[in-house]
Structures are given as structure tokens and as C-alpha cells.
Design a protein around this nucleic acid. Structure first.
Length: 851
RNA sequence: GCCCGAGUGGCGGAAUGGCAGACGCGGAGGUCUCAAAAACCUUUGUCCUCUGGACGUGUGGGUUCGACUCCCACCUCGGGCACCA
């Protein structure tokens, strides 16, 4: 026997796999395809434990599926555009490109040292012009389809990153996703992808993804935020209070409460506000509210705990259902960017309106009341409004009966009620309202005022306006030498932006904004299927052959961002005729984080355990096994050095067990004999242990298979540990009494079982120790026979009134009646004189006696 | 406020409604050794009146012969959304 030395065997096999292109994949009609994908890394520095976890999971799945007979596509690449490269370049006085590519080289070396089974010929690097040029091509496609718009809008500006951000890149507490600075709202002209065109489909198709975690689907559904309701047109009155031809439209989810509208609200930023109050007695008060809201940060305003501030504008609208004149106020709590920026206030049914009405002493007519409320007794059949206040401390927004609501009185009210439908139907007849669905999702702002990104292929011409770069002029090449350390951007490079207009030929100006990096990561998985295609981003037939991704693995932090954008891209490219499927990722696994003492490992906290250090001490196989063993993949993992040492012991036990199974006497490094034989075992005892080992082999093969199928890698490894424990017990049998067929089969099965999990050790044992031909990673997964996984006899627990009182051993195939008899005998003393009421026999498990 | 997810030994974690705590870590004891390390063996939920027994999966109920698992109500923690009309 020679010693287990991962530093020796791991690099050796890695080199061999690379030389023989073991993991290269091409189309193969004889096998089913399987596409295993892990979220590609951002090359920000060294590979960290989160990467190790992510890619170890994907690697096990890939290797297992390969052994199961699939043609497996398992690619890797780098998401290499983005701001950190600029920040690093400024700090180190270099360029974003040189920093990025140096990091890619380092990370590539680390990933190779970990032994992942990637097809390196398919590597995609998003900052390579061979990739981002096609990103521009796709941009033009979307533009042709009407999915690209440049328009002015209130947007999020990060003062620290000096760029605008998409809504998805502003975290819940109003801070930048990257640098955590509070974002500012500014009205700016920017580029958008019209993801809202797909809002309904993006929501509906979540139901077609049973292989996604509920949590992620829920988060996307929340983000898309669909509300069903109605638009209602209120007639605007002029300064003298007389009706005009103009209307102001509101969105409401509660049309059933329309009779309870006692005032009307506009957002402070609403364009009509200024016009209403200029040079009137209301100007001062209204302006004060406008300034008050403008001064509030997004964080403050979204907290929802601010005092309800507002002011009367002096103008009125008419309620279309009953012609009542109601005053128009502005209110700080009304948002310009949701619905229409105008709200019908129903203080009896909405808590915010209720508080506002109490503050400014406005009427609170009840219109939907629960039937057990005293108001219901008074108003049950009351059609006219006779009551303008409620005896309540809060608004009531639950289901109830409509009152004071004209001919609708008596109908059920509440969200989505028959009363609501009836009111909308009437409004529709009158031509002053219609059912509507409103989404919270906003269009995706994709322009960034940064250098290190994909240039937006657009040109501004004084005569022709904004024109796309013609397809034949692609790619727009990002200049390599922009000196961000000196504050340069694309806008400081005339040779980049001075161009002639492709339409009129006159002098024009190239767009100097780049695209959000998330545009790059929204289709990289498509390019992997056809990475070297010089004529197209990917050929339809090729991409349809591999896609959708069978198993996608990555962090939960992309639950909305990357995963929503990729779904949008897939649907848009489908509609462009480039793809033949609706969703990019059939199954999604969101892996948990790797923590140390309960905290996320991070450079700034200084609590990073470097994978490289662990590889040097224990090897890549032990590190990978450890990280898969310590927790289920979707849960957070608490780092434990002792745990890793335990796994290292296990790996060594496997190593020695294989030698010992081959009949070698095993010694440790110092020459101490580790094989210990129990000379008291005779042929009969040896045979019994052999039977047990055979059973365990069949059981564990079945268990590991089903565990890997369900991503229970931790229990798969536990099962292999149990097998090794059983093997160890068998190895007490002196060599002369062993069953040669059994030991050979056990050694072979053990190596095959551990191959996806500890690929280097398995390969070394397979070749150099078992002397088998061909890579272990190309072998068929071991078969098992469930009927051989069970013993001839089983021990059953006997319960009396739910408590275990005895155990009996019976033949595995014993008839229920016989088991019942044996059980009753076994608990006879416990039962005493008590009459037996019922006996339940669960074959193979237990017998339950009820007295 | 709305919506998800999770609560099991000293620790990480196991359990298609069927013997709770697999497997590993840690602890205790032992074998080998001059000694130690390594390795191996035994043991390890809590409590008690200890060859046995009681209790035990966040809390309180329920369904069931039988509940960590299913149902109802609640508590705590984590996450998402949120002055969303």
C-alpha cells in the first residue's frame, strides 16, 4: 500500500483529464442531454468558500448524471464587466481590463485545482468582444421589437457609484446593492428594457416551475406585484368649480367603496399640482407640502411611518358614480410612480385615508360595514348618504355589506367582491371606468454612466435623432486604454464618440453609457451551448437542443435580479424567433452561505477561510466532501475545522479500506500495522459478515442514488460512511476466510459511489489500485437489487398503547397473522388481564397493540 | 400589515405518519506505545429510587392504534414586499 497523498494525485489527474479532454462535450444523439449550470463568478479576486460550495454541488450533479448515461453540458465562464474593476483600477492605478483578466487567470487556476469537470473549451468571458458584441446584437433585436426605450423618468442615482441603478438594484432600505450608499431620486433621460410588457407572463409562468424553491417564486411574485382593480375617471372642475371636459384617472383595488370617496388626492410631484395653485391662496400651503416631500429621502418616505401631511389645492373633481363634488388635496403619502399618481380617498375603508381625514377634519362616510357592526343595524338598506362619520378607531378594509351606496346598497363589499364587480360594470356602461390590472414592476433601467461595460450601440444625430448602430457596424468596441484612474470615461474619448450618422452621414455622437452588467448575465447560458458561433449569438437548433438548463445552482441573492432578468430575456428572445422555449431554468437550487461563527465570511471582516489553504492541508477531495457533508445544500453552513479534519480521516479510511479489501495488509506512514484480523472468526461467522456486507452494499447504492437525485449530498455521504463502517467490520475477517468476489465487488462499488464526490481519489483507486481501464468518471453508475438489501429476518418493535414494550425477531416474509401471534406472546406480561381491542401490524416496522 | 422559510442532544445535522437523535464533530474510558501522535475498540439525549423506568423534537390544543412529520391557534428567529391606493 502507498499512502494517500492528495498533493500528489490531485494535480496529476487534473493534468490527465485536461490532456484527454475528458469533460469536453459535443452533441450526441445516442444519449439524453443534461445541462448542469452554476452561476458564473464575478472575477473580483480569489475563489472563496461560497464558490467552492456552489461549484462542488454542480460538479457532483454533472458527474453523477454522466455516470447515469447522460450527455452532460457543464460549462463555466466569467461575468467580468462591472464597477469593482473600475474601483480596483483607480486604487491600483491600472486599468479595469488588466485587473479583471489577471483575476480570471487566478480564479481559473483555483477552479482547476479543485478538479471541477468543466468543458473548458466553452468558456465565456463577458468582457471579451466575441461575447459582448453579440450582446449589442441582441440589444438591437430588442430595439426593433419595441422593447428598448430611451426616456425621461425619475430614476435611482447612486452618488458613490456615480451611476443610475435599476429598481432591482436598490435594496429594501433604499441603498445601492453594491456599495450600500443611500440612493437619490433624479429625473433623468435613460435607456430602458420594457420588461413590464412581460409582467403578466413572468408572473403566470412561475406556476410552470415546480422545480424552483417556493421562496424564490414568492419573491418574484411580490416584486412583480400584480393588483387587480379598476381605473376610474373623475371629472375635473375649473377654478370656479364648474365641470370641465377634462378628467383625472385613478387606480383603485376597491371600486366597491367609490360612494365613500370624500376627497381626492394627488402626489406632490403630480404635474397638475403647480397649475392648480399658482397665484392662488393655496399656493403657500401646497408648496410647503411639495417641498416637504421633496426633501425626504427615499428611505424616509418608504418607511410608512411619517405623519400624513397634505394641503387643499382649491380645486374639485366630480365622483362619476354619483356626481358628488369632492375636494382635491395633495398628500405626501401618494406616490407618483405607482398607479396614476392620483388616488380616490375612501377614509372609512383605507387606514391612510382615515388618518388623513382625521388630521384635516374631512368626512368619513361608511360604505362597507361588517354585518356584526352597530352601523350595519342603522344603515343596512340606506341608499342615500346620511352619515358622514364612523365610530371606529381605524378604517375597515375587510369584507362586509355595502351601505349608503345608491342601488348597490346591500351587495357584498370588499376586495374582489360582487359589489366591486357591479360598480365597475356600471362605470363601464357610463364610459367612465374600466377593469385594470396594475403591476408594481417597473421597466428595467439598463444604462450606466460607467466605462467598464458593454457599449450601448446607439448614435445621437442632430437631424435624425437617436439611431441604432447598423448591424454590420457591430461590434462597438470598448477602448481598452481608458484611464479611469485619471477620471477618464468614454465621454473623454472623442475617437470613440465622434462618428458620422449612419442615416444621414452627418456628424453625430455615439452613446457613451454602457449597459448594466446584468444584461451580460441574462443570456450567457445560451452562448455556452454554441460558444464559438461566428455568425450568431447562438444557432436556434443548437440552443434548443440543450436548453432549458436542467439544473441551475446559485445564491439566493439573485432571487429577483439575475433570475428575473434572465427569464425576461428568454421570453423576449423567444418572441424574436431565436429560441423555442419559455423559461431558461427548469430546476433551481439556491445554495446557502458559508459562515464562520455565525457571520458571513468577508474580506472586510477578516474572517475568510481560504480554499487554497485548506487544499494544501487536506486536498480538494476532502474539502469538497466536507462542504457537501456539513449541511444540506440550501441551508447555511457553519464552518468547522474539526469537521474538515473528520472528513479527512474518512477519506483516509476509504483509501485504506480499498487496499485492505484487495487483501493487502495495511500499514500507516510509520509502519504500524492497521489491518487487524479477528482470528476467532470461523467460516460461519465470516459468511454472516459477508451477507451483511452484501446487504449493506445494495442498500447504500440505492440510498446514495436517491440521495443524489434529491440533492441530499450530506446524507449520501453519511450512507457511504455507513458502508465503510460495515466494510471495516468485514475486514476483521482473516484474508483466508474472505469471499473474493464480494471484496472485489465491494471495492469497485465503493470507488464508483464516491467518484462524483471525491473524483481524484476515486480515479487514482480505480486505475492504480483496482487496475481498471478507462476513467472512473466514464463508468456506469453501480446497479443495486433492492431485494438483496434486506435481511431474511427483521426485528419488530411491539407497542402497547403507543409505547414500545418488547421486540421480536421474525422472518422478513412472515405472514401478518404469525407476526401478530408472536407479538402478543412477547407482551403477554405487560397486557396481563386487559382485553386486546385492536392490533395493527406494519410489515417490516412494528406491531401496535391497543388495550 | 401581507407573504415565505425555519425552530430536534454540548455542536453540524438524520428520520415516504411507524423504534427520535442516522452520520459526523466534540466528550469519557480503553487497546497499542517508554511516552505521545496516529489508528482502532467501547461509550455518550435528560432525569430517577438505575438488570428497570419516566421524560423528551419552540408553546398549547386536535386528528390517529401511532405525530418531529398532518390540522388549528400561538411564540421566537431569518428572509422578501410594503404609505402600492
Amino acid at each position: 500500500m502507498y499512502q494517500y497523498d492528495p498533493q500528489q494525485i490531485e494535480p496529476q489527474w487534473q493534468a490527465h483529464w485536461e490532456k484527454t479532454r475528458l469533460y469536453s462535450v459535443t452533441e450526441d444523439a445516442t444519449k439524453p442531454n443534461y445541462y448542469a449550470l452554476e452561476m458564473f463568478p464575478y472575477p473580483s479576486g480569489d475563489v472563496h468558500m461560497g464558490h467552492v460550495r456552489n461549484y462542488s454541488i454542480g460538479d457532483v450533479v454533472s458527474r453523477y448524471k454522466r455516470m447515469r448515461g447522460y450527455n452532460v453540458l457543464h460549462p463555466i465562464g466569467w461575468d467580468s464587466f462591472g464597477l469593482p474593476a473600475e474601483n480596483a483600477a483607480i486604487k491600483q492605478d491600472s486599468t479595469p481590463g488588466s485587473w479583471t483578466y489577471a483575476n480570471i487567470d487566478r480564479q481559473r487556476a483555483s477552479l482547476k485545482r479543485l478538479g471541477f469537470s468543466y468543458d473548458w473549451d466553452r468558456t465565456v468571458v463577458t468582457s471579451d468582444v466575441e461575447y459582448y458584441g453579440w450582446g449589442q446584437w441582441i440589444f438591437l433585436k430588442l430595439w426593433q421589437m419595441g422593447l428598448v426605450e430611451r426616456r425621461s423618468s425619475p430614476v435611482n442615482w447612486c452618488p458613490s457609484c456615480k451611476t443610475v441603478l435599476a429598481n432591482e438594484q436598490v435594496l429594501g432600505d433604499g441603498v445601492c446593492w453594491r456599495c450600500k450608499s443611500p440612493v437619490e431620486r433624479q429625473e433623468l433621460e435613460q435607456w430602458f428594457f420594457k420588461i413590464t410588457d412581460y409582467a403578466q407572463e413572468l408572473l403566470d409562468d412561475l406556476d410552470t416551475l415546480p422545480g424552483w424553491p417556493e421562496r424564490v417564486k414568492q419573491m418574484q411574485a411580490n416584486w412583480i406585484g400584480r393588483s387587480v382593480g379598476a381605473e376610474i375617471d373623475f371629472t375635473l372642475c375649473d377654478a370656479a368649480g364648474e365641470p370641465t371636459d377634462e378628467t383625472i384617472t385613478v387606480f383603485t383595488t376597491r371600486p366597491d367603496t367609490l360612494f365613500g370617496c370624500s376627497f381626492f388626492l394627488l402626489a406632490p410631484e403630480h404635474p397638475l399640482v403647480r397649475e392648480f395653485v399658482v397665484d392662488t391662496e393655496h399656493e403657500v400651503a401646497v408648496t410647503r407640502v411639495v417641498e416637504y416631500s421633496a426633501a425626504a429621502t427615499a428611505v424616509e418616505r418608504s418607511k410608512g411611518e411619517r405623519e400624513k401631511i397634505g394641503a387643499f389645492t382649491g380645486r374639485y373633481v366630480l365622483n362619476p358614480i354619483n356626481g358628488r363634488k369632492v375636494p382635491i388635496w395633495i398628500a405626501d403619502y401618494v406616490m407618483m410612480d405607482y398607479g396614476t399618481g392620483a388616488v380616490m380617498a375612501v377614509p372609512s375603508g383605507d387606514q391612510r385615508d382615515f388618518e388623513f381625514a382625521r388630521t384635516y377634519d374631512l368626512p368619513i362616510p361608511p360604505v362597507v360595514v361588517p354585518e356584526d357592526d352597530s352601523l350595519y343595524q342603522q344603515l343596512a338598506t340606506q341608499q342615500e348618504r346620511v352619515r358622514d362619520d364612523v365610530p371606529w378607531q381605524t378604517a375597515y378594509d375587510g369584507p362586509g355589506s355595502m351601505v349608503q351606496s345608491g342601488t348597490f346598497t346591500g351587495l357584498p363589499g370588499g376586495k374582489g367582491s360582487a359589489g366591486a364587480d357591479a360598480v365597475v360594470a356600471r362605470l363601464q356602461e357610463l364610459g367612465v371606468g374600466r377593469p385594470t390590472v396594475n403591476f408594481r414592476l417597473r421597466d428595467w433601467l439598463i444604462s450606466r454612466q460607467r466605462y467598464w461595460g458593454n457599449p450601448i450601440p446607439a448614435i445621437y444625430c442632430a437631424h435624425c435623432g437617436i439611431v441604432p448602430v447598423p448591424e454590420q457596424d457591430l461590434p462597438v468596441i470598448l477602448p481598452k486604454d481608458v484611464d479611469v484612474a485619471k477620471g477618464e470615461t468614454l465621454a473623454s474619448r472623442p475617437e470613440f464618440y465622434e462618428v458620422s450618422c449612419p442615416v444621414c452621414g452627418g456628424s453625430a455622437h455615439r452613446e457613451t453609457d454602457t449597459m448594466d452588467t446584468f444584461t451580460c448575465s441574462s443570456w450567457y447560458y445560451l452562448r455556452y451551448t454554441d460558444p464559438h458561433n461566428p455568425a450568431l449569438p447562438f444557432a436556434r437548433e443548437t440552443v434548443d437542443g440543450w436548453m432549458p438548463v436542467d439544473q441551475y445552482i446559485g445564491g439566493i441573492e439573485h432571487a429577483i435580479l439575475h433570475l428575473l432578468y434572465s427569464r425576461f430575456f428568454t421570453k423576449a428572445l423567444r418572441d424574436a424567433g431565436l429560441l423555442g422555449f419559455d423559461e431558461p431554468f427548469t430546476n433551481l437550487l439556491t445554495q446557502g452561505m458559508v459562515k464562520l461563527n455565525g457571520e458571513v465570511m468577508s474580506k472586510s471582516k477578516g474572517n475568510v477561510i481560504a480554499p487554497e489553504d485548506m487544499i494544501v492541508r487536506y486536498g480538494a477531495d476532502a474539502l469538497r466532501l466536507y462542504i457537501l457533508f456539513m449541511a444540506p445544500p440550501d441551508k447555511d453552513l457553519e464552518w468547522s475545522q474539526e469537521g474538515l479534519e473528520g472528513i479527512f480521516r474518512f477519506v483516509n479510511r476509504v483509501w485504506r479500506a480499498v487496499f485492505d479489501l484487495l487483501g493487502e495488509t495495511v500499514f500507516d506512514e510509520e509502519g504500524n500495522q492497521l489491518s487487524v484480523y479477528d482470528e476467532s472468526l470461523d467460516a460461519v461467522a465470516a459468511s454472516a459478515r459477508g451477507k451483511e456486507l452484501n446487504r449493506e452494499l445494495h442498500r447504500v447504492i440505492g440510498k446514495v442514488s436517491s440521495d443524489i437525485d434529491r440533492f441530499n449530498f450530506n446524507t449520501a455521504i453519511s450512507a457511504i460512511m455507513e458502508l465503510v463502517n460495515t466494510v471495516s467490520a468485514y475486514l476483521k475477517v482473516p484474508v483466508a476466510l474472505r469471499d473474493a468476489e464480494l471484496t472485489a465487488r465491494a471495492a469497485r462499488s465503493l470507488v464508483l459511489l464516491i467518484a462524483p464526490l471525491a473524483p481524484h481519489m476515486a480515479e487514482e483507486l480505480w486505475h492504480s489500485v483496482l487496475g481498471c481501464e478507462g476513467s472512473v468518471h466514464l463508468q456506469a453508475w453501480p446497479e443495486h437489487d433492492p431485494s438483496q438489501a434486506v435481511d431474511d429476518t427483521v426485528e419488530l418493535a411491539v407497542q402497547v398503547n403507543g409505547k414500545v414494550r418488547a421486540r421480536i425477531v421474525v422472518a422478513a416474509d412472515a405472514a401478518d397473522a404469525a407476526v401478530r401471534e408472536a407479538a402478543l406472546v412477547a407482551v403477554a406480561t405487560v397486557l396481563g388481564e386487559k382485553p386486546v381491542r385492536k392490533v395493527v401490524v406494519v410489515p417490516g416496522k412494528l406491531v401496535s397493540v391497543v388495550v
